[in-house]
Nucleic acid binder design. Sequence first.
DNA 1: GGAGTTCTAGAATCTACCATCTAATTGAAG
DNA 2: CTTCAATTAGATGGTAGATTCTAGAACTCC
Lengths: 187, 187
Amino acid sequence: MGRPAKFTQDQMLDAALAILGDGGPAAVTMAAVSARTGAPIGSLYHRFASRDLLLARLWLRCVESFREGFIAAMADDDVEAAALHTPRWCRANPAAAAALLLHRREDLAAQWPDQLGPELAEVNTSTADALDAYLARHPGADRQHLMFVLADVPYGAVRRHLLAGRTPPPELDALILTTCRAVLATG
Amino acid sequence: MGRPAKFTQDQMLDAALAILGDGGPAAVTMAAVSARTGAPIGSLYHRFASRDLLLARLWLRCVESFREGFIAAMADDDVEAAALHTPRWCRANPAAAAALLLHRREDLAAQWPDQLGPELAEVNTSTADALDAYLARHPGADRQHLMFVLADVPYGAVRRHLLAGRTPPPELDALILTTCRAVLATG
DNA sequence: GGAGTTCTAGAATCTACCATCTAATTGAAG
DNA sequence: CTTCAATTAGATGGTAGATTCTAGAACTCC
């Protein structure tokens, strides 16, 4: 093999995530990640060819974690569970939630690395597919309304709390459910 | 007097706003603003003591524009109009809307300039006051529910479209209204 | 134990940008 | 026409941070 690693890739991503939470995208410098993990800069570059690649991987790791539960709920035809997945996931993964929902992807990795293109595409299409499949099973449903209820409202509901560094309060779920039912009853 | 100005402060802010829309906060360098307006860097620093000050002023200009209509609607006791103010204002001011809703204040001006502290405080308190006044007039209303309906839902509704560079579609207003009525009927 | 490989280590380099500084314009007022 | 202040102009300095480079350490397998 070779020399065993003293620092894992995930340790580096964890450090980057923590720094991101404290100081925003600009604070995530290679030097900062180095200082936080204790790993020398050379080791960082041994794992990640560039800063953009590191941040892109961090973003992907966060997204994967979120997407899984969402797609599962949709596959079960459970729209309400899918809508509630956002606040629940935020409570379970506050740091990842803040990273994902408080920043634009381009603000993290200015240049999305080519080699990660496929992974990015996969994330996007698999989510779209889950929605398409649901719509195919429910011809009466309206896509606009679904997006509103599944994405827009939960996102908005959660955001203010993440910004404040808090976890979304439990009362939020009732509000989201009320919205969900009212809007879906419409069309 | 002296030599008349060739470039106004608003021209510089407009350029910064456009650059922000194209490339995000990091793209708004003094050199970029200089190139876009045609004004030399020296002129920029003649008007704005620092980059942070320029971006802080840009942010304030955007916020003021939004706040006005919102506060007016609240003063009229018209919650539905206040909720719809967000999508309407976004349609009327797409660039400012993107700047305001797609970035965190700290991502624009890393260090908020001291001299702008009072203006920032004013923005925050005046909005809070409008809400407090409404609550005082309507003892039955629930603050959480109001925030959800006035801030969270409209914000979420609009965001996805701003991200895509589109203007929020008109159908959104009906969805927001439906949500507004359903949630306020609850508490 | 020697060869090969993977990883740590951090100094050195290179780049981009903010901010400063000096000098040159420009037009108004007297 | 002279004086004066506001503004333009942009070269230059200083710094922060990404990236590269070279050397050495630690482990496995033969």
